[in-house]
Design a protein around this nucleic acid. Structure first.
Length: 397
RNA sequence: GGAUCGGUGGUGUAGCCCGGUUAACACGUCUCCCUGUCACGGAGAAGAUCGCGGGUUCGAAUCCCGUCCGAUCCG
């Protein structure tokens, strides 16, 4: 169930109800690909104020695997996280691990990056695995085209994603219907899982809009998905190499088509100013590796002004003249004896306990604490950004 | 006192025997990048007049002589 208050023509502020609690929208999901936000514990994430985590079907399918996940009773219990979890379907891994896989209409055959074993991931298996994980928000299995693809490739990926969306919906409904019932045997579920768990009635299933940078393909994708009917709609296949102007144009267009009363999720993005812009186009949900990966690579997002007084409406353009933050390269030599805080406007654990010089030192001597402190700060930055955006929208309402 | 081995960017080495374009490699350093995370990863840059002095040669890190420093061994 998604309720929202419309403020201006597009901007939304709302609540998304999931099996593990209500999430205030718009929100950002830290990424716990393999069942953990790198360097962070579940209680760390709770302390940071994360409302929901994102995990990945493909990675958890390789380890610990479908049967083990069923036996373990799902990811919430396994990683001791009692908030909501969204799982990516594995579709993106087809794209990001493209050297190691082969796509057919049936699905994708991966060569495991762990032991080289063949893994055949289909829409049905993705649904079964996400169900075994106990995901609160299940994503359809989709086909992602690279950012510089031809129109034909974009069209192919979009049409295939649409067909796979239909199969995902069918399998999802089937899994739910067979919960505790003998009506359909495990064999009839293509014999993949001996005892896949059933999705709860309040588990949400999202479709993913594809179509690259072509508005007509995007429109066909969105309308096709709406016809099938999903609990929410994601915009996929962006931030994969295309120009930012193109992404803005597409998001704006897709948000005009998608139903008002369902949550919208921009997958995989982005830089802070992109999120600010997409929120103002009517997007409710985000996830991105940038805060966590950049943290581990020594780049911190720091406010360059008091975030409580920012007029976010000036960030609707793809290339604003100025940004509200700087990227602090914490390994830079110039910080060697800089005892000032990383971010004067931040009150996270890292900023209140560590100077720039100290964090730089920890990176230099490769102390694991460096990765953790940097991650805490960057996630705090993103989560705080979302909080300020929600407050700003509420005020405007 | 004598013998042997060794001195090449910040560190560790290669090249030397069989002289030849901008002296190579690893790590480190510096800068930049990262968008539904295979990846504490990727890209690039700076940095050595080859211990010092002389000689041979068109040309020396490379061959010869001397010298300084270090290690080991013999007295």
């Amino acid at each position: 169930m998604f309720t929202f208050q419309k403020t201006t023509a597009r901007v939304r502020r709302g609540q998304l109800e999931t099996a593990h609690g209500v999430i205030e929208t718009p929100f950002f999901m830290p990424i716990a690909t393999k069942g953990a936000v790198k360097t962070m514990s579940s209680s760390d994430m709770k302390k940071l104020g994360a409302q929901i985590l994102l995990s990945n079907t493909y990675h958890l399918l390789l380890r610990p695997g479908l049967e083990s996940m069923c036996e373990l009773g799902g990811l919430h219990r396994f990683m001791n996280w009692n908030g909501p979890i969204l799982t990516d379907s594995g579709g993106y891994q087809v794209f990001s691990l493209s050297k190691m896989n082969k796509t057919t209409e049936e699905g994708v055959t991966f060569q495991s990056h762990i032991d080289g074993a063949r893994v055949n991931l289909t829409p049905e298996l993705s649904m079964q695995m996400q169900t075994a994980i106990g995901s609160d928000i299940v994503m359809q299995f989709d086909d992602v085209a690279a950012g510089d693809s031809s129109r034909e490739r974009y069209k192919e990926a979009m049409e295939r994603s649409l067909r796979w969306a239909r199969r995902c919906k069918l399998e999802f409904v089937l899994l739910r219907a067979t919960s505790g019932s003998e009506a359909i045997s495990a064999d009839e579920r293509k014999g993949i899982a001996s005892s896949p768990a059933a999705p709860r009635n309040d588990t949400l299933l999202f479709g993913i809009v594809q179509g690259g940078t072509h508005e007509d393909l995007r429109e066909r994708s969105a309308r096709g998905l709406m016809e099938i009917g999903f609990d929410g709609y994601a915009i996929g296949g962006l931030s994969v190499g295309e120009k930012r102007e193109e992404a803005y144009r597409i998001v704006k267009r897709v948000c005009e088509i998608l139903p008002q009363d369902k949550p919208r999720y921009f997958m995989g993005g982005g830089m802070p100013e992109e999120i600010v812009a997409y929120v103002q186009m009517g997007v409710d949900m985000f996830d991105c590796v940038l805060p966590t990966r950049n943290a581990r690579h020594g780049t911190l997002f720091v406010w360059n002004q008091d975030p409580s007084t920012i007029d976010w409406s000036i960030y609707q353009e793809p290339r604003p003249d100025t940004l509200f933050y700087d990227r602090l390269r914490v390994t830079n030599e110039s910080l060697a004896t800089d005892q000032s805080p990383l971010d004067p406007y931040c009150d996270c654990e890292t900023c209140t306990t560590s100077s720039r010089a100290y964090l730089r030192h920890l990176f230099g001597v490769q102390e694991l604490l460096a990765l953790r402190l940097a991650t805490i700060h960057n996630l705090h930055f993103y989560l705080t950004l979302m909080r300020f955006l929600r407050e700003w929208i509420s005020k405007a309402a």
